[in-house]
Design a protein around this nucleic acid. Structure first.
Lengths: 368, 368
DNA sequence: GTGAAAGCGCTAACAT
DNA sequence: ATGTTAGCGCTTTCAC
């Protein structure tokens, strides 16, 4: 049985050289495609490479050339669809340009964020795509600036005076949510969010609030922002409801809040949307297969990744223009979890056949 | 405005040396904690390090020492909660031992899987945690073996004669699902799965089938296995239902199948669990906040990651015993989506108040 | 105790 | 057209 991990010393460029009867320099030239090599020798080099199944050690090579074809990516977590997709896209785009992507998760900690950044700096990465825990003014950004790192910030950012930023146009999306809710007659909305994600949360909240107030001055907007953890938000929400507050709709500014809201609805034995409507920022695959299907703001993940990489490589290639700030438009999907308040259209339907309502004919493509 | 990306040459060990008035060798010794350095000199070195904010270039250092403190991780995708958590855990465990984790996604392609493996081999990673697209016999495993790489395989594997494997005990979990369904009186179950994930799917299917047949020989089990894509599964499921087949329960062998099943239920205007029960392999956060809450098999993510890393580092440290095969027990959460067939307990409840049923008093902790 | 020298695997001038 | 030499940033004998 062939054993694993023998760690047989891999052939070096010198092994190839002696095998082919040339010098290491020649091998290097052949492999980097320098034209000035006699084709007979080139051939012998290729044969030796083949025989020894030699491959360049990219890290050694890049050490010598003092540049590393590595892009770092830092996200708050790997577990969510959103950041998972972001990393997937960044990986694809980096590899497209012949770079390797090294991804790490800050696990919602700014300390860890900076540590990762230090490591990436130690690795001499060519550039970093940073999705900061909090916003564009944290210690990570400061570290990048101080150390002259090349980077682009995404997602939980508004605008930086040092780095390019790319994010979803949260304010516009929130305004659209406001219009949709107002149009359906909602005049008392609870907005829930996480405090620490300052940049994004405020954009989302303000976008909603200003639009709502503009078109429905009688709108009452309650806000519950918790710290970074989910538990306090749940507690606050529970206490809010137990005080007898009954908004007709909830707008959650982030995915976990949507889950919290749903679970609190269950706890109160409220039916969505008959008793209360729900819209959440961030879409997820499951939201279109549940009953009711959950209305959501869809972030343009691929576009964000694309723009970020474009800007990053522009910087890597030497562009030193002023920092750019990109806002990419979201899509708002008004699904079944939103209906006019008190309309009870589902409840009414049910009375007729004794069954909860189902929208049978809708096809629900899972592909996103 | 301080510009980014200046790429000011970073201080090297020689800069520190001259700053401290010693040689590079001495600096190296101090930094690696060799005791035989006069403390006065050590102090000056530390000061210089501080002043220049010098940091060792780990890649250069490891080049010289011909070992790289890097662990590679390859997963089929980043987007799912399961693999997201796996990567998070692996990252944590690798860093705990002073290694960096470099994660990559094969995007369900065996070709890409091997390419990634080649790159990691080029990088001279110390070891690899591979979650193969298909199973332990694919080209990736062959590549690792041929090249004497150190590695552990997880998730979609049963047992390898070359590498350690760690996976959830799919068969046992499936048997438990079978018992639960049989106990509730189900005698016609549809099992759906994805064909290409051969290793896992078969363990899950066989575990279910043999247990069901053992305790309920009259059980009818239909099986729909599709290729790797979701679309054909959906089509097959739709055609199956449109033929008039009416199993009383569906057991989905993987998460995406659970979503497909739910969306097809909707399409048929069937109510879960009144009309049909549903259990899925793989849990997700949202499954406990929907109505009905979805019954699911919970994989022991952290344990899998832990065991994988333990085995891997044992190999890295030279263990060359025979390959081990670890099966970690799952938890089966029988939530509301499973009820006795035709029981209509929800339907009955509804008749009384004209509302769909809600389990109000259940608290649904989101923490997993 | 310390530093000069050699070298990890590779590349780039510079000779030839 | 090729090989020699020097060196990327670091570590490690091995003399002193």
């Amino acid at each position: 049985m062939a054993r694993q991990g023998l760690n047989q010393r891999r052939p070096s460029i010198h092994d190839v050289a002696s095998h082919a009867g040339v010098s290491a320099a020649t091998v290097s030239k052949v492999l980097r495609g320098v034209a000035t090599v006699k084709s007979a020798n080139a051939k012998r080099v290729f044969e030796a490479v083949e025989q020894l199944s030699y491959r360049i050690d990219p890290l050694a090579s890049e050490l010598r050339r003092s540049k590393r074809r590595i892009i770092g990516a830092i996200v708050p977590e790997f577990e969510s669809e959103f950041f998972g997709s972001i990393v997937t896209e960044l990986e694809r785009l980096a590899e497209q340009r012949g770079y390797a992507l090294v991804a790490a998760s800050s696990r919602e900690s700014e300390t860890r964020e900076t540590e990762i950044l230090e490591r990436m700096h130690d690795w001499r990465v060519s550039g970093v795509v940073l999705s900061p825990v909090r916003n564009e003014h944290g210690p990570a950004a400061a570290f990048m600036k101080t150390n002259g790192m090349t980077g682009v910030m995404i997602d939980r950012v508004i605008a930086s005076d040092t780095f390019d930023t790319v994010s979803a146009d949260s304010a516009a999306a929130s305004a659209e949510v406001a219009r949709a809710l107002v149009a359906r007659g909602h005049r008392h909305v609870l907005v829930i969010g996480l405090g620490e994600q300052a940049a994004t949360v405020h954009a989302r909240l303000d976008g909603f609030r200003s639009q709502a107030q503009a078109i429905a001055p009688d709108m009452r907007i309650d806000v519950i922002l918790s710290e970074s953890e989910v538990a306090p938000l749940r507690a606050a929400l529970r206490s809010y409801f137990s005080k007898g507050e009954r908004p007709t709709a909830v707008y959650s500014l982030f995915l976990k809040g949507t889950l919290v809201a749903l679970s609190e609805f269950r706890r109160q034995a409220w039916h969505c949307p008959a008793d209360i409507s729900l819209v959440g920022f961030d879409d997820a695959e499951w939201m279109q297969v549940t009953f009711p299907a959950i209305a959501a703001v869809v972030q343009p993940v691929r576009r964000i990744a694309m723009q970020a990489m474009d800007l990053l490589f522009r910087r890597i290639e030497g562009d030193d223009g002023p920092p750019r700030m990109l806002l990419e438009p979201c899509k708002v999907l008004m699904r079944e979890s939103v209906s006019p308040p008190g309309s009870d259209r589902f409840r009414d339907q049910k009375a007729s056949n004794g069954l909860p309502p189902q929208v049978g004919a809708i096809s629900c493509p899972l592909t996103t």
